[in-house]
């Protein structure tokens, strides 16, 4: 009887071993193998967090990073992380942190914010505003546009807001230990249905109008995020 029990146990164990081996090999199609490759690539990307001190030590070190990278700091719990570019599309750049949380940006502005606690799946301003807003505000002093926001977490969709962008003038900012003159813009956010108002900030290179740094918050429960581009996703001159 005992022999049969042992045999059954060995059978189950061996079956598991065999199934595991087979699942990891012949059971995968080419598509599934591609996926596992991309997952391992993402794992490598995530290990970048360990080299944060290198990326922040000098501009050359940041430039030498393998992937487009942002530094993001949250005002809640003093969270600081490096986020790598997961996807670059015409509609924007998707940035993902080590825990899968992240956001997408377009023209330096957050268009999607995702954590398990809060998912703002769409922050959409008239397309002309992100594209030409900084130039227009720089020339005319300020520009306004309505925006719509979807909050998947609270199941609220098409929440209306208004953004007004102001040019504040030139401001020195410190990048890699070096004072750098940037164009500062402030953006007043109003979401009347939640009573939320906030002022976002953006710092642009005067030559390229590229957004190198920003502080953004689009919803009462969203933490204030400070973003600095360490390695851009497109060919652009460092400030």
């Amino acid at each position: 009887m005992k022999y049969h029990q042992n045999l059954l146990l060995y059978g189950v164990l061996a079956g598991l071993v065999a199934c595991t081996a087979l699942l990891s090999g012949c059971g995968l199609t080419s598509a599934a193998k591609d996926e596992s490759l991309s997952l391992s690539a993402v794992f490598k990307l995530r290990s970048l967090a360990k080299v944060e001190h290198v990326a922040l030590s000098s501009q050359a070190a940041a430039q030498s990073l393998q992937y487009a990278t942002l530094k993001a700091e949250l005002d809640v719990g003093e969270v600081r992380a490096l986020l790598v570019l997961a996807k670059n599309a015409a509609s924007g750049q998707q940035w993902v942190g080590a825990d899968g949380s992240g956001f997408t940006t377009w023209q330096g502005r957050i268009t999607r914010y995702y954590t398990p606690a809060l998912d703002l799946s769409r922050i959409e301003i008239s397309p002309l505003y992100p594209q030409y807003g900084f130039a227009a505000a720089f020339q005319y002093g300020r520009i306004s546009a309505p925006f719509e926001l979807d909050n998947d977490t609270e199941q609220r969709f098409q929440v209306l807001g208004k953004a007004t962008l102001y040019y504040d003038g030139k401001q020195p900012r410190m990048y890699w230990g070096k004072p750098t003159e940037m164009l500062q813009f402030s953006e007043r956010i109003e979401v009347p249905s939640t009573g939320f108002t906030h002022v976002n900030y953006y710092w642009l290179d005067p030559q390229t109008f590229f957004v190198w740094e920003s502080q953004q918050k689009w919803w009462p429960q969203m933490p204030l995020i400070s973003i600095q581009v360490l390695k851009p996703w497109e060919a652009v001159r460092y400030p």
């Binding site: 060995y10 059978g11 164990l13 061996a14 079956g15 065999a18 087979l22 059971g27």
Partner: peptide, 21 residues
């Protein structure tokens, strides 16, 4: 011997898993 028998027992599962995609 037990391991050989066990592996033989697991063969039916393997055939299912290794079926062509």
């Amino acid at each position: 011997g037990r391991w050989i028998v066990s592996l033989l027992l697991s063969l039916p599962f393997s055939v299912g898993v290794c079926a062509p995609p």
